[in-house]
Amino acid sequence: MFLQVVDLVKDFGGVVANNHISFDIDQGEIIGLIGPNGAGKTTLFNCIVGYHKPDSGKVIFKGKEITGFKPFMTNREGIGRTFQITKVTAGMTVLENVMVGAFCRTDQRPIAKKEALEVLGFLRLENVKDYHLNELPIASQKKVGLARALATKPELLMLDEVASGLNPKETEEMVDVLKRIHQEKKITLFLIEHVMEVVMPISQRVIVLDSGEKIAAGLPEEIVKNERVIKAYLGEKYAKGFRD
């Protein structure tokens, strides 16, 4: 088993953001995580990568228990992540940002630079490499977050709403990028997404959270027909659209 989450609980003193959540992810999969606002999706990510300490339950990655590991430790184990909100900073260029990711695996600046440029090429960001984050449009900011994480050479990449705030064309491009990351770099993807056009076509399986509970899990086509999911989240309209 690649990633195993067992009976995970996170209680923010009253708000139970994750209530006994269990699921597995196999290597090479693309898994979607959906649910309404405040469902506990980001919290679940944070518990896995170590920004929060779960109150109980276990996280096992590649057979090793990593519950309670610090974020830098889970990254060194091979888990990369992006953030729902990219902090827009002005102190480092795009290239430098991505080099920091690459420095995770090397001490040599020339090597870090070479690898960073490779990643930037892969994401078609070469032309903005000397800009600062605050000088870029949202779509590029999101891609830089992705590039930085990719440069750490993760085996599992966890993406928190990487397509939110993008226009249809940018969204399409992002879907394409995700597919290429999965196929060419052989990275397992675990993505939180509100944009159904992103999550449904590429996910092999989908997990649904609502008010801290896992209310469903399964193939995308099963999920859209699931009564509880429709009620809690999707709404009739989308379910119909998907069937047509």
């Binding site: 953030f83 900073t89 940002n97 990711g101």
Partner: peptide, 19 residues
Amino acid sequence: YQLRMIKEDEDAAESLGID
């Protein structure tokens, strides 16, 4: 480089394997 990243965004720095 790592220190500058910490200054920019400490959470992001940690997510990039920086202690």
